[in-house]
Structure formats: structure tokens, C-alpha cells
Design a protein around this nucleic acid. Structure first.
Length: 385
RNA sequence: GGACGGGUGGGUGAGUGGCUAAAACCAGCAGACUGUAAAUCUGCCGCUCCUUGCGGGCUACGGAGGUUCGAAUCCUCCCCCGUCCA
């Protein structure tokens, strides 16, 4: 099964209804991808993910390289087989760790020296190394190794990240294509020869730099493009502006992926910027921290007001958790620090995010995305506890 | 009956003269979380008043009394609890 992207319908807003085909299945877009950094979406079994309708999830180069090691995973048949996940996988390049592990790394044009957060040992991650690891993992979509910077970042610093990210993207592409001794390219010899490589737009919150970054990547002709460096502290409206500015420069026939977003009420905003894919740790992380996303807003399930509340977490949700358990029970589990709290909360939150995406797709199909969006916001603002 | 050891805020438990409304942890209450160093982190957690401030008043370290400018800390008696000896 080859990698290709098909657009079924485009909304006047710029939103696209599409279908992305990968070696491990078809993904209906716009899609939300749960994050499974270490070869697991925390709190959810692969079976549960499949039952929830997850078509693609994330893995992480940096984390899997450190533990259990990409060569081990290669030996065991690649990440899909290793974690028994039949669906598609997108691997992040480690670029985000350039940002999030700021205290533990040194960046140069060559690459990044990390001190492992696990044992303090030093490791060097470069564009080539990142692709080597991702090829061993055998993800369906590999991401170029980028330099993700903080917000706010001034023009010079953002320009530096754009330049470096473009240079690194070229090196990623070239490494993937590079021939080996046996005559095959690195990509052909990889665990998943059908792996696609996406470039990542940077540029901070500078529109001009975003455009420039996008054009530089388009010149490298990737099968898909991501917009990175967003949702790192900037206001949401600015984030959307940057996403829109970026996608304007990207080819219409390729999938666009905004990395690391967002809150439930923000997802449609990105979709209206012409975004096809998103991922975020929010549903799973917040679930573990007792925060349930619902159609009427957030529910901090540990709160005392839920102790005697027999209602489901979200009366409009039909997920297994909402069909089965009360707020009172979930509050009890969370208060008692029971593992099941994380499991059930994660289940609901992921179901909720996927349901939003499903409704967004449906809204695009019926030309009602704007209505969907405003109704969604209205319900949250009206929100009852 | 005797000898030791001990009684501290909801709990465990530090604190042996002022820096102590009293460490720390737990429990409790609330908030945060955006390509996961996160089952994490932050704030509050005696009562009360207001001009909400590194603000005022009150109460508090088993009980009562005492020493002292000042006591959870020292002294006296009493009450409880634990261990051991009769």
C-alpha cells in the first residue's frame, strides 16, 4: 500500500475532508492522533485504541532511541509489531525535545547533543540519526528533525531556527534517499519501505518567516508538511494565524499537520486553516491529572462536587466510560489514586477528541463547519458543572 | 505499687526558651496542563475582622498552676498511653 493523499471535499473556509493512505491503513482527515511517546498511549491498550477508532498514533524518536533502543525495535520487527499496533504510526523526530529538554541539550548546526533524562548519558541526535532511528522504527510517517523554539522568540532567533530547520530537512530527505552498499536506498532498506517523510515549518510567530520556511520546505518536495513550533505559549489566535500563513504556502494536494494541538474547542479552528492532521498530549495527560474534557467544558473529576454525582462524565458522550460509569465513581477512583482512574479518564478524553474530529469531518461534508464550531463554543460557554 | 519512655494542628511526626500559627509527609480543597523528563506541577489548608496586607485580633502543642520580659520547650501537681519490674 503506497502513501497517498486524496481530498474529497474542500470547505469555503479552507477546511479539507480527505483520506490519507499509508502502509498501515487509511486515515480519514482531518484526523486527531493520540500521542504514544514511548510505544504506548498512556493508559490505553492497543485494543482499546482500535475500538475507539484510532487510525494513527504517534511515537517518539528520542524516547524510543533511549529506551528500549531503536535497534532492538528493528530486530523485533519494527514499532508496529513491537507494540502490536496494526494501524498507522507517525514518529516525531526528536525536534520537540530540542525545545522541551532545553536544560539538557546543546544545539549546533550539526545536530543536538542531549543528556539523557533517564541516566544523564550523552547522546547526539542529528537529522541523519533521527531518520536512521525512524527508519528502524518503521513508522508510516517520519518527521524531519527540526529546531522547535520557544515563545516569544525574536525575529533573529526565529530566522535562525528557520534556516537550521530547512538545512536539517534537506539532510533528512537526502539521508532517506541515500544509497547503501547493497544498492538500495536507506528508505528502501528500512523497516517500512513505504515510510513518508514530512518537513516541518518553523518561523515562530513571524508571518514572513513562516512563509519563507514553508517555501523552503516546498522546494524540497515532501509528501506532506507539518507546522511546528506552535502552541508553545502564544495566544491561540496568533497560533491560528501562523498556521494559516503557513498552509497558504503549502501545496494543496499534500497533507498538512499542525503539531501538538490543541484544546477541544481549538481543533476546528486549525481545520479551518486547511489543516488535516493534529496530535496532542492533552487528552491523555489531562486524563491522568483528573481533567475530563466534555461537551460542556472541563470537568476536574477530583472535585468534591462530584462525590455524589450519579451522572456520566458527559451526558452527550456515548463512549464506553460515559455509558458505564458515574462521576461519583470516577471521582472516587481518582481520589483513591487507582490506576483505573487514568485508564477510564484517558479512554473518555480520547473518545471525546475523536468524536470531535468525526463531527468536524461530517460538518465539512455537509458544509456546516462554521455552525459546528460556533455551537461547540456556545455549549462550552454555557457550560454547567 | 515501682522504673523508664511518651502525650504537638484531621493523621503520622519534627521541634528542648524568642527567628513558632508551629518543619516535613499524608489526608483535604482548588487550579494548571497543547509534536509527554508529567499517575505531574502549583496554591490553600486553626478561627475571625477589615482598608486583603511580608495587616489586626483571638485560640492552640494532655490538664491546672508556676518560673521568665518571653514557654510546645524549664519547674510542680494531676490525667492518660506504652514497655518493663513487683
Amino acid at each position: 500500500m503506497d502513501f497517498h493523499f486524496e481530498i474529497l471535499k474542500t470547505d469555503p473556509s479552507g477546511a479539507r475532508l480527505g483520506r490519507l493512505t499509508t502502509p498501515h491503513g487509511v486515515i480519514d482527515t482531518p484526523a486527531f492522533m493520540p500521542v504514544g511517546t514511548a510505544g504506548t498511549v498512556k493508559g490505553l491498550t492497543q485494543q482499546a485504541l482500535a475500538e475507539l477508532g484510532v487510525q494513527i498514533l504517534l511515537g517518539n524518536t528520542y524516547h524510543l532511541y533511549l529506551r528500549p533502543g531503536h535497534e532492538r525495535i528493528r530486530q523485533l520487527g519494527g514499532l508496529h509489531r513491537f507494540m502490536s499496533w496494526p494501524g498507522a504510526i507517525l514518529t516525531d523526530s526528536g525536534g520537540f525535545q530540542v525545545f522541551s529538554l532545553a536544560d539538557l541539550r546543546k544545539v549546533s548546526d550539526d545536530g543536538v547533543v542531549f543528556r539523557s533524562h533517564l541516566d544523564g548519558s550523552e547522546h547526539f541526535l542529528s537529522p541523519e540519526k533521527s531518520i536512521e532511528i525512524q527508519q528502524a522504527l518503521g513508522s508510516d510517517i517520519a518527521m524531519a528533525f527540526d529546531e522547535c523554539i520557544e515563545y516569544p522568540a525574536d525575529h533573529a532567533r526565529s530566522a535562525g531556527a528557520v534556516k537550521r530547520t530547512a538545512a536539517w530537512a534537506r539532510r533528512c530527505r537526502d539521508y532517506a534517499r541515500a544509497p547503501r552498499n547493497d544498492g538500495r536506498s536507506n528508505a528502501e532498506a528500512a523497516t517500512n519501505p513505504g515510510q513518508a517523510l514530512f518537513g516541518i515549518v518553523q518561523g515562530g510567530t513571524h508571518a514572513g518567516l513562516r512563509r519563507e520556511s514553508a517555501r523552503q520546505l516546498v522546494d524540497l518536495d515532501f509528501p506532506g508538511y507539518a507546522v511546528g513550533g506552535l502552541a508553545v505559549g502564544e495566544p491561540h489566535a496568533l497560533s491560528c494565524d501562523m498556521a494559516a500563513v503557513s498552509t497558504e504556502e503549502l501545496p494543496k494536494d499534500r497533507p498538512r499537520y499542525v503539531m501538538g494541538v490543541g484544546f477541544p474547542e481549538q481543533l476546528a479552528d486549525y481545520v479551518r486553516c486547511g489543516v488535516d492532521m493534529m496530535d496532542c498530549v492533552l487528552p491523555t495527560r489531562n486524563a491522568r491529572n483528573g481533567c475530563l474534557f466534555t461537551s460542556t467544558g472541563r470537568v476536574n473529576i477530583g472535585n468534591a462536587i462530584y462525590a455524589d454525582d450519579p451522572r456520566p462524565p458527559d451526558e452527550r458522550c456515548s463512549c464506553m466510560v460515559c455509558r458505564t460509569y458515574s462521576r461519583a465513581y470516577l471521582r472516587h477512583l481518582f481520589q483513591a489514586n487507582e490506576i483505573l482512574a487514568s485508564i477510564l479518564n484517558s479512554h473518555h478524553n480520547v473518545a471525546f477528541f475523536l468524536d470531535i474530529m468525526s463531527k468536524i469531518r461530517q460538518a465539512i461534508a455537509f458544509g456546516e463547519l462554521a455552525e459546528f464550531s460556533s455551537e461547540f463554543h456556545a455549549r462550552i460557554e454555557a457550560g454547567e458543572p
